[in-house]
Amino acid sequence: MTSHATPAPGSPAVLRYTAFSTDPLGGNPAGVVLDARGLDDGGMLAIAAELGYSETAFLTGLPEEGAAGGDHGRGYTIRYFSPKAEVPFCGHATVATAVALAERTGPGDLVFETRAGTVPVTVAEEGGTLRATLTSVEPHVTDVARDDVQEALAALGWPAADLDPALPPRIAFAGARHLVLAAASRARLADLAYDFDRLEALMRRLDLTTVQLVWRASAEVFHVRDPFPVGGVVEDPATGAAALAFGAYLRALDAVAGNAVLTLHQGEDMGRPGVLTVELRAGDPRVRVSGAGARIPDGG
């Protein structure tokens, strides 16, 4: 349940944007506070909980304070809160914030200092639409214990036979940790009804932000879903951080070419379709994800 209450007098303005869609009813909605310098941790958490989106972004350091940037773009310090806790990095809220800033100061280069590291973002206007491209921190991919995979499958209610053997389970990081599980069919991916508490307990033990569930439609096209019980929501509609991690995962498996552009469809099964574009460049370990953004009208 989301709240659209007007902030109390003196409270910072809370904007609402969707990321990875030009339709306010698509993609992943995020809260954006463009000046959160007067808020403490409790204040930011309270705003995120009241708004009810999977994440809200707070700019706690602005360019005039000497945050990172310089020749690389306008620099900001950014923090992210789910309704339950702070998270180190959030891709869709970064896209939403970048689009919100670009609407006010124009397209160009930005630098966000996050708890996970420095994240450069470029916003460009394409045919009247603002698109943000963010570059990950250096990613890494690790094996996951067989018992942990079995516990995840049990929480999801997935038989092991429903996994795609060509894309084995791994934990991937590109700012946050995600367990990647590949479904063998689109029907398996579409049927998501899981044990919320059981999956949350596993994710907390493994320090996971989401579980990245994927189905490979073709060589460079995927459908994805992201259960997010640790954030207090059943499912995240479009997950930039997980998309970055997934790009690193495919590279680690040699499942894509050195230079690759991937299209990820997410949110269709929730009625909030979005498109995430993931770019891998030969010789550069970092991963890029891009997508459009749009303001959510008041009352929307």
Rank of each mutant, 00 (worst) to 15 (best):
residue 25 L to D: 05
residue 25 L to Y: 05
residue 28 N to T: 11
residue 28 N to H: 09
residue 29 P to Y: 04
residue 30 A to T: 07
residue 40 D to F: 11
residue 42 G to I: 09
residue 43 G to H: 13
residue 44 M to G: 01
residue 46 A to S: 14
residue 47 I to Q: 07
residue 52 G to S: 06
residue 54 S to W: 01
residue 58 F to E: 12
residue 76 Y to G: 01
residue 76 Y to Q: 00
residue 79 R to S: 08
residue 80 Y to D: 10
residue 80 Y to G: 06
residue 81 F to D: 01
residue 82 S to D: 12
residue 86 E to R: 04
residue 87 V to I: 15
residue 89 F to K: 10
residue 97 T to Q: 00
residue 121 V to K: 00
residue 122 T to H: 08
residue 125 E to G: 00
residue 134 L to W: 09
residue 135 T to F: 06
residue 142 T to M: 02
residue 143 D to E: 15
residue 147 D to Q: 13
residue 148 D to M: 03
residue 149 V to P: 03
residue 153 L to S: 03
residue 155 A to S: 15
residue 159 P to W: 03
residue 162 D to Q: 12
residue 168 P to M: 08
residue 187 A to N: 12
residue 189 L to G: 05
residue 192 L to K: 08
residue 192 L to I: 10
residue 199 L to R: 08
residue 212 Q to D: 10
residue 212 Q to H: 14
residue 219 A to H: 03
residue 219 A to R: 11
residue 220 E to Q: 13
residue 221 V to I: 07
residue 223 H to R: 15
residue 225 R to N: 06
residue 234 V to M: 02
residue 246 F to N: 00
residue 258 G to T: 03
residue 262 L to T: 04
residue 266 Q to K: 07
residue 269 D to Y: 03
residue 274 G to A: 12
residue 278 V to E: 15
residue 283 G to F: 11
residue 284 D to I: 00
